[in-house]
């Protein structure tokens, strides 16, 4: 009986959780005129015109392409730099290691708003405004520390006897790292890549400030549409639904690592 009550509570919560997302999906399948005309709990006359428009109009689909480009660059940079560093933190004690580790954390916690002004000046000086690389590097501010922390969490779970045995067997450090260690923590690397991807994908402030047109991310395209007069709710909803797709595609594979990733590898 008590179990029953719990389950009901859980189901109610999950329904409430999905309701706003369902509502956006509902909107995305209706034309703007239909939305404004009648209130309906489900699309009576479902249409895909909003999605078609996004996929055919360059100003819309280029937003997704831009986001994907800088997010991929950022994930690659973050992983490549973080892998050796995370190994160092998980295996060695060295001068200032804890301070360094803490300093990385402060960057993960720092408000992007604080870095907005100097970033804009810095990238203007080097003529990098409105390029994908500028956004990719600026997102390293929080993604590199994130990657180091998560990877360190995963690496600390690998017993050190493995390293010792490999070194005794005559492996050099680079060879051991590439052929034995990296395959061992491939789950961790996958999870880290996923989180770097997500946090870069969801960020709006820096991406919006550092781009004008050529590298404008989908998030900025959407906020500019919001501020325009006479906005198209259906189109906006469709664009929103499409931004959820990349996360929703991989969510099944990382479901057991969600807690670990969000907790910076500390769970």
């Amino acid at each position: 009986m008590r179990i029953q009550k719990r389950t009901i509570g859980l189901i109610v919560y999950l329904v409430l959780l999905l309701l706003p997302i369902y509502w956006m999906l509902n909107m995305s399948l209706r034309s703007n005129a239909d939305i404004l005309n009648a209130f309906a709990l489900y699309p009576k006359d479902p249409t895909l015109t909003n999605y078609v428009k996004i996929f055919t109009e360059e100003s819309w689909y280029s937003g997704y392409v831009n986001s994907l480009i800088y997010v991929s660059i950022n994930t690659a940079i973050a992983l490549l730099t973080a892998l050796p560093a995370a190994y160092a933190f998980s295996r060695y004690r060295f001068l200032g290691d804890k301070h360094m580790f803490f300093w990385l954390l402060t960057n993960r916690m720092a408000p992007p708003a604080v870095f907005l002004l100097p970033f804009f000046q810095l990238y203007s000086t080097f003529g990098l405004i409105d390029t994908h690389i500028a956004v990719a590097i600026s997102h390293c501010l929080f993604n590199v520390p994130l990657a180091v922390w998560i990877l360190e969490g995963f690496m600390s779970g690998v017993p050190r006897e493995i390293d010792e045995t490999a070194y005794i067997d005559g492996y050099s450090f680079p060879r051991f790292f590439a052929t034995i260690f990296v395959p061992l923590i491939r789950t961790g690397i996958g999870v880290t890549a996923f989180f770097c991807f997500m946090f870069s994908w969801v960020e709006l402030l820096l991406a919006r400030t550092l781009t004008v047109t050529n590298a404008k991310p989908i998030a900025a395209v959407m906020t500019r549409t919001v501020s325009a007069t006479g906005l198209d709710w259906g189109l906006l909803a469709a664009a929103g639904i499409l931004t959820i797709v990349p996360g929703a595609l991989v969510i099944w594979f990382v479901r057991n690592y969600m807690a670990k990733g969000f907790a910076l590898g500390r769970v």
């Binding site: 999950l14 706003p20 997302i21 509502w23 969801v202 929103g240 959820i244 929703a248």
Partner: peptide, 22 residues
């Protein structure tokens, strides 16, 4: 787990958009 994780993976500005529409 999958259903729970869904809101966490939505871009933050889209969260705002969802709630405007909602």
């Amino acid at each position: 787990l999958v259903l729970l994780a869904l809101p966490l993976l939505i871009p933050w500005n889209v969260i705002g958009t969802i709630w405007i529409i909602f």
